[in-house]
Design a protein around this nucleic acid. Sequence first.
DNA 1: CACCTGGATAACACGAGGTTATAGAGTGGG
DNA 2: CCCACTCTATAACCTCGTGTTATCCAGGTG
Lengths: 310, 310
Amino acid sequence: MIDAAGLRVMRAIADEGSFTGAAVSLGYSQPAVSQMVRRLEQRSGTVLVERIGRNVRLTEAGQVLARYAVSVLASLDAAEEEVAAIAGLRSGRVRLMAFPSSSATLVPRALSLVKKRFPDITVTFSEGEPPESLAALHSGDCDLAVAFAYEGGDIGRGEDLDLFVSTKLLDDEVRLAVPRDHPLAAAGDADLADFAQESWIAGCPRCRGHLLSLSRQAGFVPKVSFETEDYIAVLGLVSEGLGVALVPDLILAAAHNPDVATLSLKPASRRAIHAVTTEDLQRVPAVKATLEALCESARAHTARHTPVSV
Amino acid sequence: MIDAAGLRVMRAIADEGSFTGAAVSLGYSQPAVSQMVRRLEQRSGTVLVERIGRNVRLTEAGQVLARYAVSVLASLDAAEEEVAAIAGLRSGRVRLMAFPSSSATLVPRALSLVKKRFPDITVTFSEGEPPESLAALHSGDCDLAVAFAYEGGDIGRGEDLDLFVSTKLLDDEVRLAVPRDHPLAAAGDADLADFAQESWIAGCPRCRGHLLSLSRQAGFVPKVSFETEDYIAVLGLVSEGLGVALVPDLILAAAHNPDVATLSLKPASRRAIHAVTTEDLQRVPAVKATLEALCESARAHTARHTPVSV
DNA sequence: CACCTGGATAACACGAGGTTATAGAGTGGG
DNA sequence: CCCACTCTATAACCTCGTGTTATCCAGGTG
């Protein structure tokens, strides 16, 4: 029944002391103010301004409206400003969820970029493997997820296609990590079948699945002697000669171990790293900015590690 | 840019958790909510709700609006209620100004009536003669004035006609007050000329003017030996045989002095008592109620004192 | 796999709220 | 004392915000 426009008019009249003055201060024409007052009066069923001679004065009811107008309009402006701040990247929050090993370089560099460009955006970060991160995205506990998929596999379940929007960040080459003194460490490439008799160290469940898949293609079943999700530990185990392991390039870039040699797989294998969000969240400025920062961070990685290929 | 309707919708969505629910709670159709959100989004340049699957959730910006909506809408409702209270006579203030002798009966009874009917209306009262009271009305310091005019004279200056609205309350008969033992005290009527040699006691400036006017018509110039605005004093002076005086019926009804006799003037003279206000103020419920109470109070007086005449 | 529920979209209607043009009234100066 | 200036009111009109209904489309579910 009573709206912001009406209050604005009442306040302008209170401030200016005349309809004409109010109209000028609002950027309206004088009749606009005149009939706005009339509308308000017939809606509220009370006289709001007292026309005496050629100047106007607010009645008691009019003063009530003018008084409320101050606080209401201030709140309205504040709300508008807060929203504008979010739209203008001067405020905002992004809840990022990424799989553990992405925290090594990709994510930190992206967060740093965001921080540098938009100091008032707060990005909260938590670790999570694709199944959980997508669930969080779905349930609204997360705005942006960094996930990976080995070739041929999906990121999550089938819901990827239409529920989410994913942008590929980079292709992460999977390499074979062997002890530096391994007989085949000098060869540039490695045929997985040559390592059928080795002890294997497996990473996360999905990485282990990938290892099994690749070795099946190579015609053997790997002896998995260790399992750990911590790639630093994997490299440590490898360096001590306790086994060999498939390690993504992204990890090797962040954690180099001098006692470990890495070989390219002969049938190359890579995992695709995606940033996943929803159609709507993608258009939230802070999310968009973070996404772009992730892309740049990924580009920086790609440029450094595969400067010629692709 | 952002208005109450928009906030109302955002809050409803926050409360209900769905567009359809919000629409129901607002009495709208579902598409109305849907496009209101879209409008808000393109105005603010930000996504406000996240459509995930078939349920919606507010984004950070949306939550900001919903949060502000609570306080803004509460203020708006409060403002509306205050105005409604003024319109519904559950609140309000009337600044009444009346000439001194009207305070005797007319005004107190009216105030009592208002108080009884609308206990929450506060009527402030101050004394003032027509020149001042009309000025106060003009300057906005007064809402309702009770003024009087002797026959032939105007209430104020010429401004009465179109600036103010005046409603006649009653005709106040002017009588001649003489000491009870005056030779002519027994006569029902009095010819002013018979009192040409008396000492006269004059009241307020305008009353004195009226006395002069009447006596000129009767062919004499009165000897004015006392002047006082206090009619109690006038009656006291008369009762002590110090002079005669013209006293309005309204005063005599309130302050009867057993030692004073009152005579009707043969060419009857009366003063008209009006309630004066402005066109706009007349429509303010509290003012209207007070005005009506004054009319009733005047009717009560008329009925008691001139039950047959007029 | 089909149904049901909830959101999006299209087409449309109406009224709020703005505009310009003009008339009327109060005030102040020549 | 009147005239001119200014401020408000009114009329006629236009546009667009904001509602409607009808219909479609997608997601979750038995």
